[in-house]
Design a protein around this nucleic acid. Structure first.
Length: 229
DNA sequence: AACGAGTGCAACCGCTATGGA
DNA sequence: GTCCATAGCGGTTGCACTCGT
């Protein structure tokens, strides 16, 4: 069943008019209280890269592993930052390989036996970018080239993805919230939003303690879109 | 100051899945 | 079983903003 688009007959948007779907999307992607905003941590980027390697463009699944991040945000971040970095990484890796090829014929024969995916895209094999995740960086690609630091320490590849995420990022990320099963109840955070932004805003009620642990502490920038600092 | 290019991200679009009548 | 509304997903677009010239 094809959804009726939020357009008038001329095909133009109806100004500021919003259909239910538009409102829903805006809530889910932008207004939802437990959305984490601001720069991505290295852990979040690592998770994104690994999951994308495993799952492809299943952004909602990836988003489920990154609490506070929406699929849309992750998708945007991937297209605007991570994809470029991986491409850059690959180009650096290719350069290194070409250098190595010119120096060692033996090593080149080993490389040939690999499929491209084994050493190009796979973030588990490629060097880890240590650059801080400043998504607002206005530097040019050329500047990024000069600013990126490559860590050639190999990542243990045999660990399962789930174990890797749990050990490397998620457990550490939510350790301060231990005792609240945020991880298995991701949408409870929505319900935790029981303080009034305005008199017009009605939200479900829940234990106020939940707010401090999940909503308020998730990110310092959480309330800034509402003018609450 | 003005302009153009590049960038980031919210919003939109088309589609499928699902559930209720 | 059919129809319809809605939720959710991934791809794409449009525009505000920043930066360099």
């Amino acid at each position: 069943m094809v959804r009726t688009p939020c357009r008038d007959k001329s095909g133009l948007k109806k100004g500021l008019s919003r259909c239910g779907k538009s409102c829903s999307l805006r809530w889910m992607n932008y207004l939802r209280p437990n959305i984490k905003r601001g720069n991505y941590s290295k852990e979040e980027e690592d998770i994104t890269i690994r999951l994308h390697q495993q799952l492809g463009n299943r952004w909602s699944t990836i988003a489920a592993e990154l609490p506070g991040r929406t699929d849309n945000e992750i998708k945007n971040h991937w297209h605007t930052n991570l994809k470029k970095r991986l491409l850059l990484q690959n180009s650096v890796t290719d350069d290194q390989k070409s250098d190595q090829n010119s120096q060692s014929e033996t090593s080149s024969q080993e490389e040939v036996s690999k499929s491209p995916q084994e050493f190009d895209i796979n973030p588990m094999n490629t060097p880890q970018i240590l650059e801080s995740s400043t998504s607002t960086s206005s530097s040019t690609d050329h500047d990024q080239v000069s600013s990126i630091t490559i860590d050639t320490t190999p990542v243990e590849f045999n660990r399962s993805l789930e174990t890797t995420i749990q050990e490397d990022s998620v457990a550490n990320f939510f350790e301060p919230y231990a005792g609240n099963n945020f991880w298995t109840e991701p949408f409870l955070a929505d319900s935790s939003y029981n303080f009034n932004i305005s008199n017009d805003f009605l939200a479900p009620l829940i234990d106020p303690g939940y707010i401090s642990l999940h909503s308020l502490l998730l990110d310092g920038e959480l309330l800034r879109p509402y003018g609450l600092y």
